[in-house]
């Protein structure tokens, strides 16, 4: 089996498996963020559970970090190998005649998402790690904030129009990435036989609804902050 993952197809399968994991993570992240639109208390409760549950923090979180890092590193490795396989470039190449912009530019939409993830880590993840693992404060409360601090922090982050703008742009790129990536992951797993059209429709719906949902949530908090 180790030989399999050294082969070109094995790398595709590994890329697809990490993509499935990340798409599932994105779905649950969206579901929790969506709560913030309807109920600050419920969002706080769920955020506190996710942020303090030991199974999530010490088992699932490392797997998530590995999944994210693996997907990016493998993406770059495959891009470098594929560039090497190309040899001399064409003087004239009409890529639009036979493939979508999304499928040809996964590396660029991926880089845009990577830039966003770095911003997201600086915004949310690093402060969270600092509070819990360095300061040792697992209480979920903050001086001057009534109840848990999570909803308050979320609102504070979406005050800046520049940050919201960057957020919107990043999620547009995520949508473009998913428009190709969703079906591509199933194709790499060899799981498209007889259900390609259905998968494409589900993929299109997922790629539009989830990123658009994240954008709407960000705009909602930006416009409703007092």
């Amino acid at each position: 089996m180790s030989g399999f993952f050294k082969s070109s197809i094995g790398r595709k399968v590994a890329m697809a498996l990490s993509a499935f994991f990340l798409m599932f993570f994105l779905l649950q992240h969206f579901a929790i963020n969506l709560l913030s639109v309807f109920s600050a208390d419920l969002f706080n409760e769920v955020s506190h559970f996710m942020g303090t549950n030991w199974l999530i923090q010490f088992a699932l979180q490392p797997v998530l970090i590995f999944g994210v890092v693996f997907h990016f590193v493998m993406g770059f490795i495959l891009e470098i190998r594929n560039k090497k396989a190309q040899g001399v470039s064409y003087a004239k190449n009409n890529g639009a005649a036979n493939s979508t912009w999304m499928s040809r530019n996964m590396i660029y939409s991926g880089i845009a998402i990577l830039a966003f993830i770095i911003l997201h880590f600086i915004d949310f993840w690093f402060p969270e790690i600092n509070v819990k693992f360095i300061q040792g404060d697992w209480s979920g409360v903050h001086e001057g904030v009534e109840g848990y601090r999570y909803f308050h922090e979320l609102q504070e982050k979406f005050v800046s129009p520049i940050r919201v703008g960057a957020y919107v742009i990043a999620f547009v790129f995520l949508g473009l990435h998913l428009l190709h990536g969703f079906t591509s992951a199933f194709q790499s797993m060899g799981a498209t036989a007889g259900r390609k059209k259905t998968l494409q429709n589900i993929g299109t719906a997922y790629s539009i609804i989830i990123p658009l949902g994240f954008i709407i949530i960000a705009l909602f908090h930006h416009l409703n902050h007092h």
Binding site: S8, K12, L78, K84, A85, N98, S99, S103, T183, S188
Partner: peptide, 13 residues
């Protein structure tokens, strides 16, 4: 030394 398929579908077309 062939590259890796990224499922663009250009080959099929």
């Amino acid at each position: 030394g062939f590259g890796n398929c990224t499922n663009t579908g250009a080959c099929e077309i």
